[in-house]
Amino acid sequence: MHSEHDWITTPLTADLLRGALDVEHTEHGLLPHRLPARARAQNTNAQLAMAEAQPSGVRLVFRTAATAVELDTLRTKRDYTGFPPRPDGLYDLLVDGVPAGQASGTGGNVLTVDLATWAGGVTSGPVGTVRFTGLPARDKDVEIWLPHNETTELVALRTDAPVVPAPDRGRRVWLHHGSSISHGSDAASPTAIWPAITALRGGVELVNLGFGGSAMLDPFTARAMRDTPADLISVKTGINIVNADAMRLRAFGPAVHGFLDTIRDGHPDTPLLLVSPIHCAIHEDTPGPTAPDGEEIGKGRLVFAAMGDPAETPTGKLTLTVIREELSRIVEQRAADDPNLHYLDGLDLYGPQDAAALPLPDHVHPDAATHRHIGDRFHELAFRKGGPFAEEG
């Protein structure tokens, strides 16, 4: 620590956090969760357990005149067997809503994952410190967005001036659920995932339930959404169900209805936007499952391929084309009784024309530039005048 500051240590409590649905008290400190304990107890999937504990969209928010801030964290990085180490997770600093710095963590644990089996082993490491200095010496709202792709236990917060929880600015809360794309896979930083780009442009408070590999219409996720206060709700679903070859059309339609019904039990009139998958050439007309391309892995590249047989589509195997048609049909059917339910075609966020200019490097996930494109496009289609999330008046 820098000795020139008279440090004040502020206890880390849930009222300093935004975007988490639960916090777990660990031996080190606070672990933010994006699913409540009841939902976690019903989940047996290791990938979802990892994803919901990665704090995508979660930020520490407080008011202070401090010019220096230190945050001790214990991170868990993930690396993939046989691939180069992944880049360190980043922390984005915002001062009064304006980007004001970026830092990466140090130390921490490493979870090594075998992509073939999702089996993993953890190597322990020490607590690290993230430091921001040179902040303006006035009262201000400070936000530290946690790494979207690293499990992050919050150990200690130190500042050179007192900290209080930031006041409620009266912004609308946007609750969003989606896949790894919404989680922020391959985005540049936590405020550069597409939902954060949209939320910051739209002036709304984001609660991001984007879970890598895990937008599966899980009933426990629907119940978590039902029970979470929100002014705007969106559900982006389809690609993970194809990736895992998890359902056929017979099961998919009723599962969508059930998911929407559960959300409506808690939010009967809230604007609710159902979003279909963006363009993904390998799965437009070819069902799942999805698997890493073995030839490319041999070259040290992670690229995905579709393993299903298009000839099985008539028997109910799901492709993205089929899913978009079904989601559109469901919204049209329900809209007569639910005027606040809306549909957004994922191809309007990222379609074949966009893919020509901004290809998906691994055939499934957008890169940093494409996250910005999708975030800007979602803002334009959902939040602009006349859109389902537009401010009234």
Rank of each mutant, 00 (worst) to 15 (best):
M1E: 08
H2P: 02
S3C: 08
E4H: 13
L12N: 12
A14C: 04
L17D: 06
E24P: 03
H25A: 11
H25C: 04
P32K: 15
H33T: 09
R34F: 09
M50G: 10
G57F: 09
V61R: 15
V61H: 12
T67H: 02
T76R: 03
K77I: 05
T81Y: 00
T81L: 12
P87C: 06
L90I: 03
V110L: 08
P136W: 01
R138C: 02
R138M: 10
L146E: 05
N149Q: 08
P162N: 07
D168Y: 04
L175I: 06
L175E: 01
G178I: 12
S179D: 14
I181E: 06
G184V: 09
S185L: 07
P190F: 07
P195V: 13
I197C: 00
A199N: 12
G202I: 04
L206A: 03
L206F: 01
F211I: 09
P219L: 03
I233C: 02
L249V: 06
R250F: 07
P254N: 09
H257W: 05
D265E: 15
G266Q: 09
D269E: 13
S276F: 11
P277G: 06
C280Q: 14
T286G: 02
T286P: 00
G288C: 05
E296G: 01
K299C: 02
A306L: 04
P310C: 05
T313I: 15
R324A: 00
R324H: 06
S328I: 00
R329H: 13
V331Y: 08
N340V: 03
L344H: 11
L347P: 03
Y350D: 01
A355N: 14
P359F: 09
H371A: 11
H371I: 11
I374V: 15
D376R: 15
R377G: 07
E380Y: 08
A390E: 10
E391T: 10
E392N: 09
E392M: 13
